[in-house]
Amino acid sequence: MGDSRPVYQRIADDLRQRIDEGSLAVGDRIPSRSELKRTYAASDQTVDRAVRVLKAAGYAEGQFGRGVFVTDRAPLGSLLRSTGAVDSPFAARITARDTALTWLTWEASSSETAAPEPIAERLGIGPGEPVLCTQYEYLANRHPVQLATSWEPLTITEGTDVAHPERGPYARRGVRGRLAAIGVRVVRARELVGSRPATTPEAEALGCAAGSCVTVVERTHFDGDDRAVETSDIVVRADRWRLEYDIPFIS
């Protein structure tokens, strides 16, 4: 029985297999358009479509004036999620192939805004109620690692020393440390992990193509009354970073 796959898909699948098996190594130039046309008796449009599929899957990238080359798809490392990690918008520890990537720096900006409906639902407040939105960009050795957006209800922090996560006497102490300073005891956090295509701004910040797969962690902190006091979206490149969870067992 003949191969029923479209020709562009067959070309893309064959190239992926060669990359996975190592006959096309990282940094190798994939066959040119003319070579692929000749091998598969395909048109320019079919070959171009196959290469676009390969690029979208993260297997290859174009270099202007040189051609299309196999990319390094091996994970750079792991972002550890633990009881320490959930206190801040980034992992408590990074394990990476390149030790230079284990040092994090970040930039943040905060602004007051009205809670969008999905965020209001996560915080248990009414849509449009005031929240402080803080956007973070994390770098390791100048490489983009992670994006995070955090929302906190202003009914909890407004007018206090902890209203801004990056300013004041309790800056950069994490959700638990900051809120403890105003008498709010954070007792648990919940994380939901999913994936989706990267938006154009996310792709530009993380150094990948728009539409590439990103891992998204939706994290929410709760106080002793089970009230949500903060919620965040954490975004990392799915092809470069894995999430590592430390799960201690209590006897």
Rank of each mutant, 00 (worst) to 15 (best):
R18Q: 15
G22W: 02
L132G: 02
S43H: 08
Q45F: 08
L15D: 10
R33H: 05
T102Y: 06
L54F: 02
E61C: 01
E137P: 00
E61D: 10
L147M: 10
S150F: 00
I19E: 02
P127M: 11
Q135D: 14
P118S: 12
W103Q: 09
A115M: 13
A25I: 01
R142C: 01
D72R: 07
P127V: 09
D48Y: 12
V131L: 04
S32M: 03
W106G: 13
R142S: 11
T155I: 02
W103I: 09
K55A: 11
I30A: 06
F90T: 05
D44K: 12
R18V: 01
A108H: 04
L123Q: 06
A57K: 10
T99Y: 03
F69T: 04
A57S: 08
A41K: 04
K55L: 03
I156P: 03
S82W: 06
S43Q: 09
P127D: 07
S23H: 07
N141A: 15
E158Y: 02
A41E: 05
L104T: 05
H143M: 13
D44A: 15
A91D: 13
W151H: 14
G126N: 09
R29D: 00
A148I: 04
I30Q: 04
A115C: 14
Q146I: 11
F69W: 06
Y59T: 02
V68S: 03
S23D: 15
T155Q: 09
Q17T: 06
E121T: 15
S110E: 13
K55I: 13
L24A: 02
D44N: 15
S23G: 01
R16A: 10
H143R: 15
R52S: 14
L79M: 13
H143D: 05
I156V: 14
P75A: 09
T155W: 04
S34Y: 01
I19N: 00
W151G: 04
V70F: 11
L76Q: 10
G62F: 06
G65C: 08
S88W: 10
W103G: 05
V68F: 01
V131I: 15
P144T: 09
D44Q: 12
E152Q: 14
I125V: 14
V68T: 15
W106R: 10
T95I: 13
A92R: 07
P116W: 09
S23E: 13
V26H: 00
A120T: 12
G58R: 04
P127Y: 08
T39Q: 13
R93N: 01
F64A: 08
S23N: 08
L24W: 02
S109Q: 14
F69A: 06
T99L: 13
R73L: 07
D72G: 06
S32K: 11
A25W: 05
R97C: 00
K55P: 00
